[in-house]
Amino acid sequence: MKYWIPNAVTALNLVLGMISLGFTMQGDFVPAGFFIVAAMIADGLDGRVARALGVSSEFGKELDSLCDLVSFGVAPALLAYQFALKEFGWIGFSVAIFFALCGALRLARFNVNTTTVKGYFMGLPIPAGGCLVGTFVALGYKPSGWTFPILIAIFAYLMVSSVHYPDFKGKGNEQIHAIPVILTAVMAGYILWHSLEAIVFVIFFSYAFFGVLNFAYGLFGRQRITAAKQ
Score class of each variant (00 low, 15 high):
residue 113 N to Y: 03
residue 201 F to D: 11
residue 153 A to E: 13
residue 150 I to C: 11
residue 17 G to F: 00
residue 24 T to W: 01
residue 160 V to G: 02
residue 136 F to K: 15
residue 208 A to C: 07
residue 74 V to N: 02
residue 147 T to K: 15
residue 130 G to F: 01
residue 230 Q to N: 11
residue 183 L to D: 09
residue 172 G to C: 01
residue 209 F to V: 12
residue 76 P to H: 05
residue 184 T to N: 04
residue 90 W to D: 12
residue 220 F to M: 13
residue 214 N to F: 00
residue 65 S to V: 00
residue 112 V to I: 07
residue 211 G to Y: 05
residue 222 R to C: 01
residue 99 F to E: 14
residue 83 F to A: 13
residue 130 G to R: 04
residue 91 I to H: 13
residue 100 A to P: 05
residue 60 G to I: 03
residue 60 G to D: 02
residue 23 F to Y: 05
residue 133 V to W: 08
residue 214 N to C: 02
residue 44 G to T: 04
residue 67 C to M: 00
residue 225 I to T: 15
residue 165 Y to M: 13
residue 108 A to Q: 03
residue 30 V to L: 15
residue 114 T to K: 09
residue 96 A to Q: 09
residue 149 P to M: 14
residue 124 L to I: 09
residue 153 A to D: 15
residue 90 W to H: 15
residue 79 L to W: 06
residue 123 G to H: 06
residue 52 A to D: 11
residue 178 A to I: 12
residue 44 G to P: 10
residue 18 M to F: 01
residue 28 D to R: 14
residue 111 N to Q: 02
residue 8 A to Y: 01
residue 8 A to I: 04
residue 31 P to Q: 02
residue 51 R to A: 01
residue 163 V to D: 03
residue 230 Q to S: 09
residue 186 V to H: 08
residue 101 L to A: 14
residue 223 Q to E: 06
residue 26 Q to M: 04
residue 36 I to P: 09
residue 139 L to P: 13
residue 85 L to M: 08
residue 105 L to K: 07
residue 28 D to A: 12
residue 25 M to D: 10
residue 135 T to Y: 06
residue 196 L to M: 10
residue 193 W to Y: 10
residue 132 L to R: 13
residue 213 L to M: 05
residue 63 L to Q: 01
residue 196 L to H: 13
residue 47 G to M: 01
residue 143 P to E: 14
residue 128 A to M: 09
residue 191 I to D: 04
residue 33 G to H: 05
residue 201 F to L: 12
residue 120 Y to L: 05
residue 77 A to D: 11
residue 125 P to N: 05
residue 104 A to Y: 02
residue 225 I to K: 12
residue 188 A to V: 07
residue 223 Q to K: 08
residue 140 G to V: 08
residue 114 T to L: 10
residue 39 A to V: 03
residue 158 L to C: 14
residue 139 L to H: 12
residue 98 F to W: 10
residue 16 L to T: 03
residue 103 G to R: 08
residue 21 L to S: 00
residue 40 M to D: 06
residue 200 V to M: 10
residue 25 M to R: 09
residue 95 V to F: 07
residue 86 K to N: 15
residue 138 A to W: 07
residue 92 G to S: 10
residue 100 A to V: 01
residue 96 A to H: 09
residue 197 E to G: 15
residue 161 S to T: 10
residue 52 A to F: 04
residue 85 L to Y: 07
residue 58 E to F: 00
residue 25 M to P: 09
residue 190 Y to F: 12
residue 170 G to K: 02
residue 170 G to P: 06
residue 211 G to P: 13
residue 82 Q to I: 10
residue 181 V to S: 11
residue 176 I to G: 09
residue 164 H to K: 14
residue 78 L to H: 08
residue 163 V to L: 02
residue 212 V to Y: 04
residue 147 T to I: 11
residue 93 F to I: 14
residue 129 G to P: 11
residue 34 F to I: 08
residue 81 Y to N: 14
residue 17 G to N: 02
residue 75 A to E: 04
residue 57 S to K: 03
residue 148 F to K: 14
residue 207 Y to V: 07
residue 219 L to S: 05
residue 108 A to F: 01
residue 7 N to E: 00
residue 126 I to W: 03
residue 30 V to D: 11
residue 73 G to W: 00
residue 79 L to R: 09
residue 146 W to N: 14
residue 85 L to P: 15
